[in-house]
């Protein structure tokens, strides 16, 4: 659903004035894209939810300092990105220590996951997605598979909307070529582009 940036500004102004309903409405608007973005960066549902929670706590605390003439999304996604990167770095250090102590069993886990996932077209698309360039994969997943607005994805990764569209286009072409010999092409739900706003 397309969002009106001026409505964002009004909500931020109400939030700064202490209106609880404005907070709930902003969360309602942005929790989904923000959580999906955090999940792409962190790879864990609980971590993604925690980061988005922390980002909204910050938004509420700093509501008075936010510029209500500018859209709220890019500010929120930048905060989510910063918090997610911090958490990611901390966890990477922890994982490295754990691996050194226990020995690496990621390969076994990955092969078991792959066997379970290979059950459907969606799983097949996901598996083939992993072979794409990272930005193509990220943009395709959010825009096509998750129906997140192109502008939001652009704000998340700090690139232009046309670049996002280009990544999606290329991802679609690459996937079509990869899936053609397997299932005769990309499943119908991923072939059209009406969702790319």
């Amino acid at each position: 659903m397309p969002r009106d940036p001026s409505a964002d500004g009004a909500l931020v102004a109400r939030l700064a004035a202490g209106d609880d309903a404005a907070c709930a409405e902003l969360v309602q608007r942005y929790a989904r894209p923000a959580t999906l973005f955090a999940a792409q960066l962190l790879g864990d549902r609980d971590d993604a939810e925690d980061v988005v929670q922390a980002a909204f706590v910050l938004a509420v605390e700093r509501a008075a300092d936010l510029d209500s003439t500018r859209p709220f999304g890019p500010w929120l996604f930048a905060v989510v990105r910063r918090l997610a990167l911090k958490r990611h770095a901390r966890q990477a250090r922890r994982r490295a220590l754990w691996r050194r102590w226990r020995g690496d069993d990621d390969a076994r886990t990955a092969s078991a996951e792959a066997a379970v996932e290979a059950a459907s077209d969606l799983a097949l698309v996901r598996r083939e997605l992993r072979g794409l360039a990272a930005m193509q994969r990220a943009c395709f997943e959010l825009v096509v598979m998750r129906d997140v607005a192109v502008d939001d994805v652009a704000a998340m990764y700090d690139i232009s909307a046309s670049t996002v569209r280009q990544h999606v286009f290329r991802a679609r072409q690459a996937l079509r070529a990869r899936l053609e010999p397997l299932i005769g092409g990309l499943p119908a739900r991923f072939t059209d582009a009406p969702a790319e706003r």
Partner: peptide
């Protein structure tokens, strides 16, 4: 990472939004 660990149903998003707003 891919986002397959995040369910995409309305009930999940409603519950999550409620939790986040309440916490904030």
């Amino acid at each position: 990472f891919d986002t397959s660990m995040i369910p995409d149903d309305a009930a999940y998003w409603t519950a999550l939004s409620g939790r986040i707003a309440e916490g904030a």
